[in-house]
């Protein structure tokens, strides 16, 4: 068994960053050396030969990492950039989003925590002061894109000519802001594809659901970017698997071959995560967009040497 444990604490200073400017200056941002942050974490690697005999070899490896990212200095108190807000003591991947509350079971309206509690769009539910107007929805720190742990698990097993190896990648914790899902839940345009979750939409008073009524006139409110689209980013992915068999030498020699191997190999054979079709590994920042998801590739073949 061999293994390593590493602890790292890396300080980055004088970071170049696009600092947002008031748009009324005529510019949207300027590049500045805005500050300092550190990345810190543990990296653990273990490799175990579970069995090491003449005909049977089994090796298992595990990789596990953690990451903590924190600003230690910024030129201004806060910088809001896209779905994130940067502050000292916070990470570069902390979500700053309007706070989703749920769906009003009376009329199927989307409800958000209200910022201005005096506004006309305000509704009271229990102890909560809520709004149907996205522009009045309150912003809030809503978790981070950074996972608690992430890494991979590999295994390689060989018995005589037969070999089976695979690699899983995984992550636990972290949130993904699933823009793709958001667009598949929008009722704003005719003739577009939907997520199957749209079947759960509110339809009549009393319906308890987390999908608002389908209302073409209200998409900018009901389908807006908010903490509603945050999804657990934990996943387990069978990244690749190879099963191969070396045909015994006495057989190959008779056929005039020096070596022959049949194999099956698969990539991305399965991915378990919170939502089918979601690819959480797209971006460090945790957002999704319309890009190709990793293909599932299956290869079956024969390798012959003469």
């Amino acid at each position: 068994m061999i293994g390593t444990i590493e602890f790292y604490h890396r300080i980055s200073d004088n970071l170049l960053f696009d600092v947002p400017l008031p748009l009324s200056s005529g510019l949207s941002s300027k590049t500045e050396n805005i500050g300092a942050l550190f990345n810190q974490g543990i990296e653990l690697g273990v490799n175990v030969d579970v069995v090491k005999a003449q005909n049977l070899v089994w090796n298992v490896g595990l990789n596990l990492s953690t990451l903590k990212n924190e600003f230690t200095r910024l030129p201004q108190d806060e910088i809001i950039s896209g779905s994130k807000k940067l502050m000292v003591g916070r990470s570069i991947y902390d979500y700053w989003l309007r706070e989703w509350w749920g769906v009003d079971s009376d009329d199927g309206a989307a409800l958000y925590r209200a910022d201005d509690v005096e506004a006309s769009s305000v509704r009271i539910k229990g102890n909560d002061t809520l709004t149907t107007d996205i522009n009045n929805a309150k912003y809030k720190y809503s978790g981070t894109a950074i996972p608690d742990i992430f890494g991979s698990l590999t295994s390689s097993l060989r018995y005589k000519g037969l070999e089976l190896s695979f690699m899983f990648t995984y992550q636990a914790g972290g949130l993904v802001l699933d823009y793709n899902y958001q667009s598949c839940m929008s009722s704003g345009t005719y003739g577009t594809g939907y997520s199957i979750d749209i079947l759960n939409r509110w339809q009549e008073p009393g319906d308890i659901t987390d999908v608002p009524r389908m209302d073409d006139t209200q998409t900018s409110n009901f389908n807006a970017t908010s903490s509603r689209w945050l999804t657990d980013a934990s996943f387990l992915n069978l990244r690749n698997l190879v099963l191969s068999y070396d045909i015994p030498e006495n057989l190959t020699r008779r056929l005039g071959m020096t070596r022959a191997r049949v194999y099956f190999s698969g990539e991305n054979l399965f991915l378990i995560n919170a939502r089918k079709g979601m690819n959480v590994q797209q971006n460090f920042s945790g957002t999704t967009s319309n890009v190709y998801t990793p293909n599932r590739v299956i290869t079956v073949g024969v390798n012959v040497n003469f």
Partner: peptide
Amino acid sequence: LRWLHRSATSSYNERNWLMFYGWIAN
């Protein structure tokens, strides 16, 4: 057409504002 431009986070809202202020700055 649908008056979605008035939302504070509409890209149309933002870009039109920035466009005019860009010309003003110049």
